[in-house]
């Protein structure tokens, strides 16, 4: 599968000149402008940027939920036009689990709908996934009986269980308290080590980006444009000297526009 433009093998995911807009009753809102980046297989790519810069919008476009106003998104060379289970999505909102299904049934539903495998096998796999995210004891609990962190863990398990090669996460830990948040970050890295996929992770926290990412794309404030691209050298890079420089550089890039504005 080759793109018509380039003779070499197409990247796993390619976002080219992506402009995304919302039509509201009064305005045409441009959320992102002319965004381009590439993702290789097994990257943990972080989309980092201030609130409202269009990170979620980009992620939804990759998920196929929003049609581009300009540019295109290609997944393994194929144009993305609609949602599909080859891209698993984890949302920021706690209400993403179906409230009428137990944690286990949520995963079973995802697995049977996305992969169309028999229920028996789906049940077995769902139990395994619950075990991997330490929710075995809560298999039969309904979402409203779970804490925020547990809900997000169940949502991550549900997403991974569908075997999507591309995982899209939209600030899944943003509404958690600091302790659960760092526990969840560790857990996500562990899951990723056990079961490698390509991950695109949206956050507005520099720390989270440095902990989780192998690559970081930095966006300018609204309307989002690519401001910088980073590749981190190793894990826990936030602690090392190189990491500190990186962080300062990111902070500078993120807040520079604001300082300019203040002057």
């Amino acid at each position: 599968m080759h793109t018509s433009a380039s003779p070499e093998i197409s990247p796993f995911l390619e976002v080219r000149n992506l402009t995304l807009q919302y039509t509201t009753p009064q305005y045409l809102v441009t959320a992102t402008w002319n965004v381009g980046f590439q993702v290789s297989s097994f990257d943990r790519l972080i989309l980092l940027g201030p609130s409202g810069c269009g990170k979620s919008t980009i992620l939804k476009a990759i998920g196929g939920f929003i049609k581009p106003a300009g540019g295109e998104i290609r997944l393994q060379g194929k144009l993305v036009t609609k949602p599909g289970s080859d891209r698993g999505m984890v949302f920021q909102e706690f209400d993403q689990l179906l409230p009428w299904k137990t944690a286990l049934e949520n995963i079973v539903f995802a697995v049977t709908s996305a992969r169309r495998i028999p229920r028996r096998q789906a049940l077995e796999e769902a139990r395994e996934w619950l075990h991997k995210v330490n929710l075995t004891a809560f298999a039969d609990a309904y979402p409203h009986e779970l804490s925020g962190g547990m809900k997000q863990r169940a949502a991550i398990a549900r997403c991974l269980a569908t075997n999507s090669p591309l995982i899209l996460m939209d600030e899944p830990f943003a509404s958690l308290d600091a302790l659960s948040r760092s526990a969840m970050q560790e857990e996500l890295l562990r899951l990723w080590e056990e079961n490698r996929r390509t991950l695109i992770f949206v956050t507005h926290s520099i720390d989270e980006a440095l902990i989780l990412g192998t690559r970081i794309i930095l966006f300018s404030p609204h309307p989002g444009q690519v401001r910088a691209e980073f590749t981190s050298v190793r894990r826990n890079v936030g602690q090392s000297l190189r990491g500190r420089e990186l962080r300062e550089r990111i902070e500078y890039l993120l807040f520079q526009d604001r300082v300019d504005y203040a002057i």
């Binding site: 939920f65 949602p83 949302f91 993403q96 179906l98 996305a114």
Partner: peptide, 18 residues
């Protein structure tokens, strides 16, 4: 019905009746 739940359903490419 919340937009998130709708997107969850669309993510699995369910048929309209489903």
């Amino acid at each position: 019905v919340s937009n998130t739940l709708r997107m969850v359903g669309r993510n699995y490419a369910l048929s309209p009746p489903a």
